[in-house]
Design a protein around this nucleic acid. Structure first.
Length: 313
DNA sequence: CTTATCCCCTGCCGGC
DNA sequence: TGCCGGCAGGGGATAA
């Protein structure tokens, strides 16, 4: 369930695994991966991998011969590397690349939301999906001025704005949650109600958070939360009912823009309650937890809070 | 322009 | 133990 940091880790892994290698054989094992496939997988044999890039949550694998593999991991997609072995890998593997160095790179995707397609590299500039994306949140950090313009006059919850891929490319639910926590901003705060100081703080918090998340999760194999062996490295995400690492208040879970949202009532007070925001009519009393959160594993003390959220101004 | 809701899929977890 | 409902970090379509 990757966001920008996880996709960036994928890009780095794929760069190491693929660049300079030649594809010996490729196979699309799940038609759902590319519903419009024209059978391009067979044509990948003999192509060399030139370069791997990332744009927001999209991965771009540039091949010789003027083609680019475009991948989106969506919720459970993941690239893995194995030694070559004869025969086709079983689900949840959906795509396989056998390389000239005897390795095999697989695309695994339990929920099958991921997408993979092959496009002419020269036409990527006009690709509708890529064209929709706002500037990459890491490679092209948004300035306070720009964020101020995006937020001005908007009554959308600030969290929804952060997650809007047309405005900022790459931030997802966790990123938005953790960044707002670091800034001491309530997720439901109407974007247009933020002062210049808050906007600047928010813009400035995005790249450091992304850098931290990349470092915190840089492993050969990413294990997404919810999977066996996963470890929650985040400060408040999915920590409903547990004490805030900064102030001790119980973390609260609500829903914003249809997505689970965690926040700290102590560090992220709501300053400008919207008239009809989700749950606005009855602010959740602190302590009344919706459903007892998954208890943190015993022996896992305070979540590693890379930086305490700054209060006030 | 918004927002909310449902959908796409599968697996896991807690509760009963 | 087994079943059932809720939930999951993606995005898109559709309805208000």
């Amino acid at each position: 369930m990757p966001e920008l940091p996880e996709v960036e880790i994928h890009a780095r892994n794929l760069r190491e695994w693929l660049v300079g290698r030649t594809v010996r054989r490729a196979a699309l094992l799940d038609p759902l991966l590319d519903p419009d496939s024209t059978g391009w997988a067979a044509a990948l044999a003999g192509r060399a991998v030139r370069e791997v890039a990332r744009e927001a949550k999209h991965l771009l694998i540039h091949l010789s011969g003027g083609s680019t593999l475009l991948a989106h991991l969506r919720m459970t997609g993941r690239f893995l590397r194995d030694a070559y072995c004869a025969g086709e890998p079983a689900p949840p593997t959906r795509f396989v690349l056998d390389l000239d160095d005897g390795t095999r790179v697989r695309f695994e995707d339990r929920r099958r939301f991921g997408r993979l397609r092959l496009e002419p590299t020269a036409r990527l500039a006009e690709d509708a999906e890529l064209a929709r994306l706002g500037p990459d949140a890491l490679l092209c950090p948004t300035t306070p001025d720009r964020l101020g313009v995006l937020a001005a006059g908007s009554r959308r919850p600030i969290k929804a704005l952060l997650m809007d891929q047309r405005l900022l490319g790459g931030l997802g639910n966790i990123c938005a949650i953790e960044i707002l926590y670091r800034c001491g901003l309530h997720p439901d705060e109407p974007a247009g109600s933020l002062g210049a100081e808050a906007v600047a703080r928010l813009a400035g918090a995005i790249p450091p958070y992304l850098e931290w998340a990349i470092r915190a999760q840089s492993r050969r194999e990413l294990i997404y939360l919810g999977e066996k062996g996963a470890e929650n490295v985040f400060s408040i995400y999915r920590r409903e009912g547990t004490p805030c690492p900064a102030c001790g208040a119980a973390i609260v879970r609500t829903v914003t823009a249809g997505r689970g949202t965690w926040w700290c009532p102590g560090c992220q007070p709501r300053r400008n309650p919207g008239p009809t925001g989700a749950g606005a009519s009855a602010p959740p009393p602190p302590g009344r937890t919706r459903r007892s959160a998954r208890a943190r594993e015993p022996g896992t003390p305070a979540p590693p809070a890379p930086r305490a959220p700054r209060r006030g101004g």
